[in-house]
Deep mutational scan, measured.
Amino acid sequence: EDYYQILGVPRNASQKEIKKAYYQLAKKYHPDTNKDDPKAKEKFSQLAEAYEVLSDEVKRKQYDA
Results as ranks from 00 to 15, higher is better:
E1A: 15
D2S: 13
D2M: 04
Y3H: 05
Y3Q: 01
Y4P: 00
Y4C: 01
Y4R: 01
Q5M: 13
Q5S: 14
Q5R: 07
I6L: 12
I6T: 08
L7P: 00
G8I: 03
R11G: 05
N12W: 12
A13K: 00
Q15S: 11
Q15M: 10
E17T: 13
I18D: 00
K20L: 14
A21M: 08
A21G: 03
Y22P: 00
Y23P: 02
Y23F: 14
L25H: 05
A26S: 12
K27T: 12
K28G: 06
Y29W: 11
Y29Q: 04
Y29L: 13
Y29E: 02
H30F: 09
H30R: 06
H30K: 07
H30S: 11
P31N: 13
D32Y: 03
D32I: 11
D32N: 13
T33C: 10
T33L: 12
T33W: 10
T33F: 15
T33K: 11
N34K: 04
N34F: 14
N34M: 14
N34L: 14
K35G: 10
K35P: 15
K35V: 12
K35E: 08
D36L: 07
D36C: 07
D36I: 04
D37M: 03
K39M: 13
A40T: 06
E42S: 05
E42D: 10
K43D: 04
F44T: 04
F44D: 02
S45D: 15
S45L: 13
Q46P: 03
Q46K: 15
L47C: 07
L47D: 00
A48G: 13
E49M: 14
E49P: 04
E49H: 11
A50P: 01
A50R: 00
A50C: 04
Y51R: 02
E52Y: 07
E52G: 13
V53P: 00
V53A: 03
L54W: 01
L54P: 00
S55V: 06
D56V: 02
D56I: 02
E57P: 15
E57V: 12
V58A: 15
V58C: 08
R60H: 02
R60W: 01
R60L: 01
K61G: 11
Q62G: 07
Q62D: 12
Y63C: 02
Y63P: 02
Y63W: 03
Y63T: 02
D64N: 05
D64M: 03
D64C: 03
D64P: 02
A65E: 15
A65H: 11
